[in-house]
Amino acid sequence: MRIPKLLQAVLVLAGVYFGFIVVFDVILDAVIPSSLLVMYMFFVTAGVFMVFTYDEEGTRELVAPIKALVEDPSKRVWRNIVFVIVPLAAGAGTYVQMQPSFEAPLELRTIHPAPPSTAKIYGKRVNLLKLENPFRKLEKEDPEQFRELVEEGAAVYIENCQYCHGDKLDGNGPYAAGLNPTPLNFQDVGTIAQLQESYLFWRIATGGPGLPKEAAPWISSMPVWQNFLKEDEIWKTILFLYDYTGHSPRSWGHE
C-alpha cells in the first residue's frame, strides 16, 4: 500500500527529528543544542514542503486530507476533535514555554578560553607559551623520585580538589552537583589530554577570577589556588592528574 503524502511528510519530519536526537544524543553522545535543532527542523520542514509541493498532483495529494477534514461533512466528528485538540495543544505549548523556570537564563560563555601568552602568577610574570612543569623531566631521569612527587601531588589533590572534581577525577565529587559550570572531568579525553601543562598551571593558579574577558561572565567557582598552595604543590598536582588518568599532556612540539 502506498503511504499517503501527508503521512509521508510527517514521517519524514519525525524521522529527521528523531534521527538528529538519536544520532547526536545517543550514538555520538554529544547532545544537539535545542536552539539549533529548532532552526534545523525549520529548514528541513521548508525543504520537505518544497519537495512535496513543486507539482500540482503532489500538492493536491498532500493537502487533500487536510481539506477533507475541514470540508467533508462525513468527517464531522474528527473535525470537532481536531478543532478542540489543536487550540489546547497550542495553549499547553505556550503555557509550558512561558512558565517561569528555575533555570538560569542562557549565557554565551566560553569556559575554557584561549590562554593569554603571559600571566602574573605568584607575583612573577610567566610566559605560558614556554612554561614547563619543572618536575616533568624526572619522569625519565629519576622515575623513583617522580613517583614520590606524584604521591605528594595526590595528597594535595585529595586534600583540596576532590570535593568537587571527585576522587576518581571524573568531575563528580560530593559538591559537583551544586556547581554550574560543572567541575571538569579529567578522565574525559577532551579535557586535560588536549591541554598543555602550563594551561593547567594557569587555570589552577588563577582560578575562576583569572579567566580572561572572553570567558565572561566569570561564574566559575574555581578558587584562586595561588593564594592557598605553593607553586611546587600545583606542579605536583598536575603530575598526579595526568598520572592517575593515564593521559599525557599536550607536548610543545608541533604536530
Binding site: A30, V31, P33, S34, S35, E103, A104, L106, I111, H112, G171, N180, P181, T182, L184, N185, D188, G190, T191
Partner: peptide, 11 residues
C-alpha cells in the same frame, strides 16, 4: 546552549 546542555556536553 542551555545549562542542561552545557552540563551534558561538559563544556
Amino acid at each position: 546552549l542551555t545549562n542542561e546542555e552545557l552540563k551534558a556536553l561538559g563544556g
